[in-house]
Amino acid sequence: MGGKEILIKAVAQAIPTYTMSCFLLPQGLCDDMERMMKNFWWGQRQQETKLGWVSWKRMCNPKARGGLGFRNLKAFNLAMLAKQAWGILNNPSSLVARVLKARYFPTGNLLNAKLGSPPSYSWRSIHSSLEVIRQGTWWGVGNGKQIHIWEDRWLPTPSTYKVISPQIQNFEFPMVSSLIDPNTRWWKAEVLHATFLPFEVDTILRILISYNLPEDKLIWIGNRKGEFSVKSAYHVAHSMVNASEEGESSSGDPYRQLWRNLWHLNLPAKIKIFA
């Protein structure tokens, strides 16, 4: 079993990595590849039937959550494509960024871009990963011109990062820049009190604004360093693909420390895997 784990992770799940970084694989293809890996794991050969004692979905959970750390191919595919999207966001002067912007979102930005008609397969693939970027980032306020007050994530509240105060109808300009006084380079307190709930007013007033009013910046929240990585993007994508199971196996898992201790024991791999 220990050897099979290494073969699946280092060979079977590594072979499609390059393709996954460029194109969105069909769900049927991902299911077929995972079925072959599952059959290999349980020892099935040709047409014989072998019983799978644990679901493949659970085996794709991290080892610290009772799984074996196999990749969910769909989630890993989205994470690899999110890396392409992140590169476009952070290097808008690159050739691919300029071509895609001219073709699909000439007047907006990548995160708000529509799929368009007829889209190329490359653009369709990148567009499918944008939700990973949205879920894994929040806006650092600069001049506020790119941040929508109610639709974007920009508040330092880790639960949602979004404004929960009800949106005011016919609001003159729904961008964060309308809340900043260009003369004092600080928040318009009277507008905040008239627009948001009291606790959100206090939260906004704690956001520091640079006197130079630089461009707004997307900040990755998938890891502690604030830097994008495929690994952290995979965790975001996996929670999206398998939201219900992720909710059950959150930080409240009573066996979390048990799993961590188990994998650090000096025991043969087959015993730890069986446990």
Rank of each mutant, 00 (worst) to 15 (best):
L115I: 15
P119C: 10
Y121R: 11
S122Y: 14
S122V: 15
R124E: 12
S125L: 06
S128W: 06
S129D: 02
E131P: 00
R134K: 15
R134N: 11
Q135D: 10
G136Q: 02
G136E: 04
V141T: 05
G142V: 01
N143C: 11
I147E: 01
I147L: 05
H148F: 06
E151G: 00
E151K: 14
E151W: 03
D152P: 01
W154D: 04
L155Q: 06
L155F: 07
P156D: 06
T160W: 00
T160S: 15
Y161D: 02
Y161G: 01
I164Q: 15
F171M: 08
F173S: 14
N183G: 04
T184I: 12
R185Q: 13
K188M: 14
V191F: 05
A194H: 10
A194R: 13
A194Y: 02
F199Q: 13
F199A: 07
E200C: 07
D202G: 04
D202K: 13
I204P: 00
L208G: 04
Y211P: 01
L213Y: 02
E215W: 02
D216W: 03
L218N: 06
L218H: 09
W220Q: 07
I221A: 10
G222W: 04
N223Y: 06
E227Y: 05
Y234T: 02
H238C: 05
H238M: 12
M240I: 15
V241Y: 05
A243P: 10
E245M: 14
E246P: 00
G247Q: 14
S251I: 09
D253R: 05
